[in-house]
């Protein structure tokens, strides 16, 4: 494998891991290890929107800009396990290149419906145990499934960023306040928060602070900014929905 090929393979490794949602420090470490075991000392720098790979002793650099996306940890796991195999010399560099290409084209996913069901189950948040009645939990789950389906559907067809979050918040808020207008539930706000649990970026907020603390300032700041914007989009959608229905009924 010549130096150019090594650069390409290393950059592919990094961009796959970034698309899967791995932390920046893990990506940098993995890419540098891959470079070492392929026989070229590399330096890697990752922000949330780009992977820079550069050879230490040669004037070679490669930049990859994957699109910002959610989690797919299956990819991260596969890249991780084959790069470990490469390091322990269980597979040859050629095989490694082939495997990386395979992951590019084919990633195992859980089926669509099991993801929707899972979104419904996430919506039954344990935080509200002392604040809502047991009967409210199934409602949260149904709204949660609904909100997540809307989110997935719109993010598949919409080019405009953050529209999917906005629409998810809007529709879930409308449904929960309508239930409240007919006096079917007591705590419509809690039901709304629960149903939006799969969409709100709580994990991203925590990950961004972990990244900032561990010294990856840029990546952490970009991630927290992204989290703040998507949080605000959901909240804006919810506020629009709530006020619309309140004006309509009064």
């Amino acid at each position: 494998m010549n130096q150019n090929e090594i650069m390409n393979v290393a950059a592919d490794t990094g961009s796959l891991m970034l698309l899967g949602g791995a932390e920046s420090f893990r990506i940098e470490e993995t890419v540098e290890h891959v470079g070492k075991s392929l026989g070229l000392e590399l330096s890697c720098y990752v922000t949330l929107t780009a992977v820079f790979v550069s050879a230490d002793d040669l004037p070679l650099t490669k930049v990859v800009k994957p699109k910002l996306s959610g989690f797919n940890l299956q990819t991260v796991d596969e890249v991780n396990s084959i790069s470990r195999k490469l390091e322990s010399k269980e597979i040859t560099p050629e095989e490694y290149k082939k495997e990386i290409n395979n992951i590019h084209h084919y990633v195992k996913d859980y089926s669509k419906w099991s993801q929707y069901l899972a979104a419904g189950l996430v919506s039954m948040a344990p935080v509200f145990i002392n604040q809502v009645k047991m009967i409210d939990y199934p409602i949260m789950a149904i709204f949660g499934i609904f909100g997540f389906m809307i989110y997935k559907f719109i993010s598949k067809y919409s080019e405009t960023p953050y529209v999917a979050e906005f629409m998810g918040g809007l529709l879930v808020a409308i449904f929960s306040i309508i239930l409240n207008q007919f006096e079917l539930v007591d705590h419509y706000q809690l039901i709304m928060v629960g149903a939006l649990m799969p969409l709100v970026p709580g994990t991203a907020i925590t990950t961004s602070i972990r990244e900032i603390v561990s010294g990856h300032m840029l990546s952490g700041i970009v991630r927290s900014l992204n989290a703040i914007i998507s949080l605000s989009s959901i909240a804006a959608g919810a506020i629009v929905g709530l006020e619309m229905i309140e004006h309509l009924f009064n």
């Binding site: 991260v76 709304m192 928060v193 649990m197 970026p201 709580g202 907020i205 925590t206």
Partner: peptide, 22 residues
Amino acid sequence: IMIYIGSLISLVPGGMAFSSLV
């Protein structure tokens, strides 16, 4: 991270931040 992601979901402050914004 694969264990962190799922097991932190009940603790992370997403819902809290959202409800105070709304």
